[in-house]
Design a protein around this nucleic acid. Sequence first.
DNA 1: CAATAACTGGACGATATGTCCATTATATCG
DNA 2: CGATATAATGGACATATCGTCCAGTTATTG
Lengths: 199, 199
Amino acid sequence: MARRPILRRMTLPAARGRPRSAASTAAILEAAYALMAGQGLAATGIDAVARAAQVSKMTIYKWWPTREALLIDAFLHQAAARLPLLGEGSGAARLRRHVADYVAALDSDFGRVQRAVIAECIAGGGSAAAFFERYLAQRRAALARIIAEGQADGSILSDAAPAAIYDALYGGLFYRHLFGMPPQPDALLALCLGQAAKP
Amino acid sequence: MARRPILRRMTLPAARGRPRSAASTAAILEAAYALMAGQGLAATGIDAVARAAQVSKMTIYKWWPTREALLIDAFLHQAAARLPLLGEGSGAARLRRHVADYVAALDSDFGRVQRAVIAECIAGGGSAAAFFERYLAQRRAALARIIAEGQADGSILSDAAPAAIYDALYGGLFYRHLFGMPPQPDALLALCLGQAAKP
DNA sequence: CAATAACTGGACGATATGTCCATTATATCG
DNA sequence: CGATATAATGGACATATCGTCCAGTTATTG
């Protein structure tokens, strides 16, 4: 009979024709990230990405409608592995560890690229809401959960809403980073978690 | 003898030749602001500004080295009148009033333009440190002073460093604004000023 | 009037944008 | 295998912006 395998069809919806090249996709995303990290946003045009990825420009335009979409994807492709949220210890301990990781990441390629992506979002759509929806929202929800656990286990004294604690803490960290001030995680942690939060 | 008047020379350093046109300067700054507010950053090229201000492109390039410098100036030109810091009442009351003004301003032309300027700074120099130096730093210092007064008069309960309170409060507000979340000034104020700050 | 400096208007090369096409490559289906 | 379908290529293309340059005009001072 040689009927088309139903199961296959449901998972990979009819792969007729030449399949999309995973190698090109990865090369494009990595080139975009590397250009943002190295040369900055201004040097990260579609032409430059195509050249660096050794790929035709049309291949990029085929899969990404705007530069904004490409740069967000390039960021997500690298960010997936970074800034893990799991760990052991009290809520406060896990939060402190993540804050330390976040501060270190901001002071690296990752921070430069994140700024570039945000700038591109603003230039394109007026705000960085797209970046929030595709990246920050999940992180914020996960960290709010950890903050709530910290309140439950007594390691975080403040009884403010977890989301508000997150906004003040990470908003403060991001604000200082964006405007070129050195990070001061301890002062913000003390303020946002309640004066003398337990370890 | 008809010597050149010394005093004049010290205040206005030798005004020989045709003087710079104040009307053109104002028209350029206002056109740049209006374009950012109306059409967004992408539509605010030097050519477009020159056209809108009815000015030769060379006049812009003569006085501003980069688009970043022009856009910051255009922002400052409008921002000077906004967000007054003076007022009456306790430190907490003045701070609350400013927070309300700030939130209202962000949700207007002013907010869009501020985002555009920040994006341009990132695209140009990698960070928005230039914007901080020319605008935010003074505001931050003035508000930290008001916060310190609030701690002194007992209207702000938290004894954290005023700068840390500022960073958490305005960082949180800015973070929510930048990423498209609705403002929640009351939650952040309660958290940052100490649970139940007096009026 | 002479000297000085700002402003004009247009032209220029370099670069980026997004689109289009004919061609080639790689897969599935019958 | 051959037919079909889709990706990827590489170059051309019109359009737009950037920053610079220049010759000429305008405004102000000495």
